[in-house]
């Protein structure tokens, strides 16, 4: 029942893990905003952003390789869209500035494609830092303290609680299918998949009924009360002050 790909490493005890979830949410979202709004082609600034986030990763003790591997999930999208930008821009302006193996490549398009790839990677890295250093429950508590609608939070926490069970169930069914299905045709295979997903739905629905009944029998009246143990302490102030100063300094340096 353990799926290590969900909030893995979030049980470590580093200074970053100890921060209040709100501090990390605000800092990482600010980081993403700072990166996304940086003009194209300022690769030196992106380098500074990368150093900032790398420092946080090192402090958190989360393996750098793990972060890199996860952030590479962005790359397929980069390849699909940004990769043909250089070719497109070349035909749009009618003046190619590079000629590579007989293919006209536009320098401006290349810069734009590189910018998008770097922005996507940096933003994903920041979110990996957030999810790898914060347990999902703590993340939800942080969002609750930041006044996200209660209904959404309850839905999110139910989803998270049953995600593992649903994934386990679907993996078990898929294993059963693979061990019995030796190369059937397209339509038949799709029907089997449909039946699997249908069964998954019926089981999920019946589970939600049981969960609801057991909640009602324990006095659930539509609201979940929990004790919030969130405290913003001095490490939070110090971390956010340094982090936000770094972001601001990088952006100001970019204006010079």
């Amino acid at each position: 029942m353990k799926h290590s790909f969900i909030d893995r490493y979030s049980e470590f005890g580093s200074p970053i893990h100890g921060l209040d979830p709100r501090t990390k949410i605000v800092c990482m979202v600010l980081f993403v905003l700072a990166v996304v709004t940086t003009p194209a082609g300022r690769f030196r600034l992106f380098g500074l952003f990368a150093i900032t986030i790398a420092t946080v990763i090192v402090l958190s003790g989360v393996p750098v390789l793990y972060v890199l591997r996860r952030s590479c999930l962005v790359l397929p999208f980069v390849l699909l869209t940004a990769a043909f930008l250089p070719l497109w821009k070349a035909t749009a302006d009618g003046q190619a500035s590079l000629n590579l193996l007989g293919v006209q490549i536009d320098r401006q398009g290349l810069v734009l494609a590189g910018t998008m790839a770097v922005k996507g990677l940096l933003a994903a890295t920041a979110m990996i830092v957030l999810s790898a250093t914060t347990r999902f429950g703590a993340l939800l508590k942080g969002l609750e303290a930041m006044r996200l609608p209660k209904v959404m939070l309850m839905i999110l926490s139910f989803m998270y609680r049953y995600l593992f069970i649903a994934i386990d169930q679907s993996m078990r069914m898929d294993r059963a299918r693979r061990s019995r299905d030796c190369g059937s045709g397209y339509l038949r295979r799709m029907r089997t998949l449909g039946n699997m997903i249908g069964m998954l739905f019926v089981r999920s629905y019946e589970r939600s009924e049981r969960v609801y009944q057991s909640m009602v029998s324990r006095g659930f009246d539509g609201e979940i009360r929990n004790i919030s143990r969130l405290h913003i302490e001095s490490p939070d102030y110090i971390f956010s002050a340094i982090f936000i100063t770094c972001l601001a300094a990088i952006r100001v340096a970019g204006q010079l």
């Binding site: 139910f158 629905y205 939600s208």
Partner: peptide
Amino acid sequence: TPLIGVLAA
């Protein structure tokens, strides 16, 4: 709430 959460899962 439980229904939508479980169905999201």
